[in-house]
Computed example of a mutant assay.
Amino acid sequence: MLVQLVVMIFIGIVGSFFSGLLGIGGAIINFPLLLYIPPWFGLEAFSSKEVASISMLQVFFASLSGMITNRLGSRGGESYVHKRLVIQMGASTLVGSLIGSLSSMLMTSETINMIYGILAVIAVLLMLVPTRASRENRTVSEVTYHSWMAMGAAFIVGGIAGIVGAGGAFILIPIMLTILKIPTRITIASSLAIVFLSAVGGVIGKVASGDIPLWPSLFAVVGSLIGAPIGALISRRMNVRLLRYGLAILIAFTAVKIWLDILG
């Protein structure tokens, strides 16, 4: 039990740290950590269903914790979270994800993996598009965007996220940065809140299915509550260009792995 406690808390800290740092739900990182690390320490391996359940809980609490930390540590007392953007994109993503998850039952695994791989490549290219420095200095109250475009993009991404079983933040963030032209720090803080809203439905579904291992999940959640605020705090002190390149590298690794699986 002690080894399991340490391992699961460690996994929770690592996954949620990058969640808070880069504004993603963390499922891209959590899933392989949960799948491969426990057996390295002589623990029983989790099934894919168990990994998905633990990861969903981690995403829920990590995004909530990182979102709160970002909101409390804003410039001049103003939150980095754009409330209207979160409500519009969060609701659209949730609806799209539900439709996508139902549609995925009609698709083959190869088709789903190819959709994921194509989107990951597009996300990397979008992340490499430079933004104007003047845009990065805007506060939440100064940010303007096209509401219908934001909701439409979130709905589409939510549908795709439902198909491939990912949180979708790794696509939403490049769209918010490049198409909606939202400043990087506001994008990262707001994307955590959007992921949180999307994760609510996922957690309800996992609890109802009964696939959640109780103690490992609780240990991972404890780690998530530690790591996400640390990542969020560091995020606010890092150069925004480093944040963009860091996220691009993370997505690139994901894209390479997916295409190796497809072509292998």
Rank of each mutant, 00 (worst) to 15 (best):
92 S>G: 11
235 S>E: 10
236 R>T: 13
221 V>F: 04
42 G>L: 08
26 G>C: 02
95 V>C: 08
89 M>I: 05
100 G>D: 15
140 V>W: 03
150 A>H: 05
139 T>P: 13
115 I>M: 04
173 I>P: 09
50 E>T: 06
42 G>F: 09
45 A>W: 07
183 P>H: 09
33 L>A: 08
246 G>P: 14
31 F>I: 14
84 R>F: 10
31 F>A: 15
152 G>H: 07
183 P>Q: 08
24 I>T: 10
60 F>E: 11
20 G>Y: 00
241 R>Q: 13
175 I>L: 02
12 G>W: 03
116 Y>D: 03
235 S>V: 06
61 F>N: 06
86 V>D: 07
46 F>V: 08
151 M>L: 08
185 R>D: 03
157 V>K: 01
179 I>E: 09
167 G>H: 06
97 S>L: 05
135 R>H: 14
113 N>Q: 14
136 E>A: 02
37 I>M: 10
148 W>G: 15
84 R>L: 14
253 F>A: 15
248 A>Q: 12
14 V>D: 04
13 I>E: 04
244 R>K: 07
262 I>C: 11
245 Y>P: 07
156 I>S: 13
63 S>V: 01
34 L>T: 00
60 F>A: 10
203 V>F: 00
188 I>R: 09
107 M>I: 10
159 G>P: 12
233 L>N: 10
231 G>I: 03
67 M>Y: 07
1 M>I: 13
206 K>R: 11
1 M>Q: 13
149 M>A: 12
194 I>M: 11
260 L>P: 13
54 I>M: 12
108 T>D: 04
56 M>A: 00
19 S>C: 15
264 G>E: 00
107 M>T: 08
196 F>S: 03
201 G>P: 06
185 R>C: 00
258 I>R: 15
237 R>C: 05
131 T>F: 01
209 S>Y: 03
79 S>L: 14
137 N>D: 12
65 S>K: 09
175 I>D: 02
71 R>V: 14
65 S>N: 11
249 I>M: 04
192 L>M: 05
246 G>Y: 08
199 A>S: 15
9 I>W: 09
70 N>A: 06
198 S>L: 09
229 P>V: 03
31 F>Q: 14
2 L>H: 01
205 G>D: 04
2 L>T: 03
135 R>C: 11
141 S>H: 12
3 V>Q: 13
211 D>C: 06
